[in-house]
């Protein structure tokens, strides 16, 4: 983008970017360095020693996995329907869905709380997965529809002329062709579900249902807020999302580019 033919210009740019990146490192540096205060590595041992430590990760994985499956299925079928099938008042329905884009999860808390009590969903993973899905689906449908729109109609028509049913068309054309979109969806939903804090905090109150974002809370007590261990817990919980992002970075950017910025 920038022309940097001379060595000086290159050095200048490199220097500028480095300086600009420093503020991004300060909180990270603080978090890691202060997580060793007091007990040193012992703080990390204490975090790993939290009863049911693995359960926290497993629960987050359940929430994330459930959200991904639900969102993926609902999004793909809906995007297919909106983009390639005949639906009565399609655009009205689509807009109704898009209005939900503006809804913050905090607004859901009070009504969902009362509803979950009535349905007996409180303290089940559904009480977290369903709202996450509800909040994500409008977004994911919107991008995925854009993506599916970009697949030529002729492909679908040809298949149909060959006698394939709608489900077959969906399964053998749409699903394989939208793989890069799927990766982007999965990364987005995974990170979002993994990071969800408020919903699990309010709805998953039972002992063995904590998720990773609640792990630092384990060291936040009436009589001892153990800050080094809170920070160590924060580092431990942050690692999976960072690794996921780094590992899927290329796919993620490709999916974004394909689905969002055609």
């Amino acid at each position: 983008m920038f022309e940097t033919r001379s060595l000086r210009a290159r050095l200048f740019l490199q220097f500028g970017v480095t300086i600009a990146a420093v503020p991004f490192l300060i909180p990270i540096y603080t978090m890691v360095s202060r997580s060793f205060a007091g007990g040193g590595w012992g703080n990390y041992a204490a975090v790993i020693g939290v009863p049911g430590f693995l359960q926290f990760f497993l629960n987050s994985a359940i929430v994330a996995g459930g959200s991904i499956i639900l969102i993926y299925l609902a999004t793909m079928t809906a995007a297919f329907g909106f983009s390639k099938l005949r639906v009565w008042r399609k655009e009205v329905l689509f807009w109704m869905m898009m209005v939900a884009l503006t809804l913050p999860e905090i607004v859901l808390i009070a009504p969902l709380y009362a509803t979950a009590v009535q349905l007996g969903l409180l303290g089940t993973f559904w009480s977290v997965i369903l709202p996450i899905a509800a909040l994500q689906i409008p977004f994911t449908v919107l991008i995925t529809r854009g993506y599916v729109d970009g697949i030529p109609d002729t492909l679908f028509e040809a298949a149909r002329l060959d006698g394939a049913g709608t489900f077959r068309v969906f399964w053998s054309i749409l699903v394989p062709l939208s793989r890069s979109m799927a990766v982007a969806l999965i990364v987005l939903v995974l990170i979002n579900a993994w990071n969800s804090y408020l919903l699990p905090k309010v709805f998953l109150s039972s002992d063995d249902m904590g998720v990773v974002t609640l792990l630092p809370d384990f060291f936040r007590r009436q009589y001892n807020d153990d800050i080094p261990k809170i920070l160590a817990a924060a580092v431990v919980t942050a690692i999976p999302t960072i690794v996921t992002y780094v590992a899927l970075q290329k796919h993620f950017e490709r999916g974004m580019a394909a689905g969002a910025i055609r």
């Binding site: 303290g123 309010v202 039972s206 936040r220």
Partner: peptide, 17 residues
């Protein structure tokens, strides 16, 4: 933690759990 206790107890009692 103090605040968490309040936030967690009511839903839990309401849910019968």
């Amino acid at each position: 933690e103090n605040v968490d206790f309040r936030t967690s107890l009511t839903p839990a009692l309401d849910s019968g759990k």
